[in-house]
Amino acid sequence: MYLVVEQLLNGLQFGLLLFLLAAGLTLVFGIMDFVNLAHGSLYMMGAYFAATFVAWTGSFVLGALLALGATLLLGIVLEYVALRHLYGRDHLDQVLATFGLILFFNDAVRLIWGPAGLALPLPAWLTVPVQIIPGVYYPAYRLMIIVVALAVAAMLYLVVMRTRVGMLIRAGASNREMIGALGINIKLLFTLVFGLGAALAGLAGLMQAPILTVQIGMGENILILAFVIIVIGGIGSIRGAFMAAIFVGIIDTMGRAFLPDLLRKVLSGAAASTAAPALSSMLIYLLMAIILVLRPEGLFPAAKR
């Protein structure tokens, strides 16, 4: 029972992290109609910046804030220099160009930080376990991820639904040409949205960094998960991305935790130990394939264009 609660929380934490990544991706995808494979690289850069700045400043919070700013800046520069010329181009052109950026960032990181991974140590106050319900302890840091991610999600919701910028973002998602024709500075809006997406990806990266090793290629696995999420949730829909992210996070974590035992009850030992890792890794892709076959537009499609 305690294990189930713990794994549920792990799933929620992973799902929220995925949401941070997917939110930026779905905004960029929904508004600029831009497929950004390099989004995973921004996630990686967030983690590397955090590892560096935390080591420099000696403070986890200060380092994290600096890393966040650095990723935001990187995103804006990237958009301004290269990516804005790709809006309105074929999706394949965008895939090719951003694939090139992945190659670039991976080798740039290898050049600057070396091929070995970095570790981002946690400060002492974040390593203590917290008693959440009597008898169940949960790491404070993971709890903090949940709180921060939920706060960011709420803030994102408020910004998108309650502010003027948010209104423009929503308008852009439903009809790009029209808001341009109404005299809105779309270029600036796009740069802003891209920077926001980059900062969210960086935040996800730097928060994940202490749990996993900071290493080259860390963005590539998780990028595909983020794509799965925005496809399941319906492209351009933040609400859909949120639901799908939590859903995917919990299913993935629970699958990895409990599927092996379940399979052992059904299959023989050898067959189960072969099938379990494959099946638990495949689970979300299977889920996505089923959803796409049944509902090709995703679960929560954004308003029709």
């Binding site: 290269a82 010329h85 790709l86 181009r89 052109d93 965008q94 090719l96 160009a97 694939f99 090139g100 950026l101 992945i102 190659l103 670039f104 960032f105 991976n106 080798d107 740039a108 050049l111």
Partner: peptide
């Protein structure tokens, strides 16, 4: 990748 990546980008552009 430092060269190949930007080359791909330039080709697309």
């Amino acid at each position: 990748g430092l060269i190949l990546g930007p080359v791909l980008l330039l080709i697309v552009l």
